[in-house]
Amino acid sequence: MTQPLDQICIVMIQTSHPGNIGSAARAMKTMGIHDLRLVNPTRFHSPETKALASGADDILEQARLCSSLQAALADCHYVIGTSARSERSLPWPQMDARECGQWVAEHLPQQKIALVFGRERTGLTNEELEHCQALVHIPMAFDFFSLNIAAAIQIICYECMMATRQIQASKPPEVTSAKGLEEPATTAAMESFFIHLEQALVEVEYLDPDNPRLLMRRLRRLFGRINPTQSEVNILRGILSAFQGRKFIRRSSADQINVRNT
C-alpha cells in the first residue's frame, strides 16, 4: 500500500561531494522518504557515499540517475526548489521549512511532489528555478548563512513527516482518500505545454524570440500558481492548436488574395 511520504522525491543537482549523497540518503530514511534522484552528480559510487549513508543502502541502490532536471521531474506534479535567498528579481511563491512541510502534507498523496536541492556552493540556477512552482528556505541566524545540503534535506524532510503525521491523525480515512480526485498535470506534460505555448506566441508575433525578456518565465509562474490538471492542459493545448490553425488559414487567404492581384 502506498504511503503519503512515498509521493515525495528528493532531487539533488550536480552534487560535488559524494559524502553528501550518502548523508542525504541517511537523512531521508530516518524520515521515511525513499525516492532519491541525482542529476549529474560529480561522484556517486564511492566508499564515502556508502559509509555516510549508515545503513540507507537501499535508497542509494534505488536512486535514479538522471541526465537533466527535466528527466528527474517528468512524473512529478508540483516542484519546490530550495533557495538560501528569500528575494529574487522575479518573485516565486515563498515558504519557510515549516510552511513547506504543511503545504506538502496537505497535498499528499494526491500529488507527486519534488523537493529540489542545488549545488553545494551555488544552489539552483535561474533556468532550473523555472521548473519550480515555489521556493522554500530555511531561516538561519542572521550572522551565519551556511547549512550543509544533507542537513537541509534532513530539516525539510522532518517538517514534511511531522506535518503529514498530524494531518493523517486528524482526518478520518474517507477524507484522506484520493479517489475521485483528478491529478494535476505532470511536469513532463507542463513542459510540453510551455514549448507549445512559446511556439504559438512566436507565430502570432506576441513573443519576439530575439528579445523575449521575462515573458515565458512569468507565464511559468502564472501556470505554476494555477497548477492545472491534465485535462485542463489538454484544453489549453487544444486552444493553442485552434489559434495556430486559424492563423494558418488567414495567411493562406492573404496569399490567395495577393496571387489574384498579381
Rank of each mutant, 00 (worst) to 15 (best):
R221C: 13
H137G: 03
N211K: 12
R251G: 11
F144A: 04
H137K: 05
I21R: 09
P212K: 00
P18E: 07
D210S: 09
C100M: 00
P4L: 10
A84S: 11
Q111L: 10
S46C: 14
A72L: 08
P93G: 00
E182W: 00
M216G: 06
I149S: 08
R85Y: 03
L36Q: 05
Q230W: 02
K29E: 13
P173A: 05
I33Q: 12
N211W: 00
Q14T: 08
E127Y: 07
L36A: 08
D57N: 14
C100T: 08
A188H: 03
H137D: 03
V116C: 07
Q199S: 15
I235G: 14
D6L: 06
L5F: 08
L135I: 13
P93C: 04
Y78D: 08
E99L: 07
P184R: 04
R260F: 08
G32F: 10
Q168W: 01
Q199F: 01
I13F: 09
K29W: 03
R218P: 04
N227K: 06
R64L: 15
F142Q: 14
A97N: 13
S146C: 05
C160Q: 05
E120N: 14
Q7N: 15
P109R: 00
D96C: 04
L115M: 06
N40L: 15
I153V: 15
T186W: 02
P228M: 10
E99D: 12
E106S: 15
R64N: 13
C66T: 10
F223N: 04
A200R: 00
R260D: 15
L236V: 09
T164F: 04
L219A: 07
T122C: 12
I10D: 13
N261S: 10
G32E: 12
P91Y: 03
F117P: 11
V233C: 00
N20Q: 10
Q102M: 07
F117C: 09
K179C: 07
G55F: 11
T125L: 13
E182V: 11
Y158Q: 01
T122N: 14
S192Y: 01
H17W: 04
K29D: 13
P228D: 07
S46M: 14
G118M: 08
L69W: 09
P18Q: 09
N261P: 02
A53F: 10
L181F: 05
A189R: 03
P18H: 10
R213A: 15
R165G: 14
L52D: 05
A185G: 12
H196R: 03
I239F: 12
Q199N: 13
A114L: 05
E128C: 02
G55C: 14
E174G: 01
L115A: 08
Y78K: 06
L181Q: 11
W103G: 03
D96W: 00
R26A: 13
Q230I: 14
I59E: 11
S177C: 06
R26I: 14
A200I: 01
L124Y: 01
F193L: 04
P47R: 05
C76K: 12
A134Y: 02
T122E: 13
C132V: 03
A152W: 04
M190I: 01
R217P: 04
A150I: 04
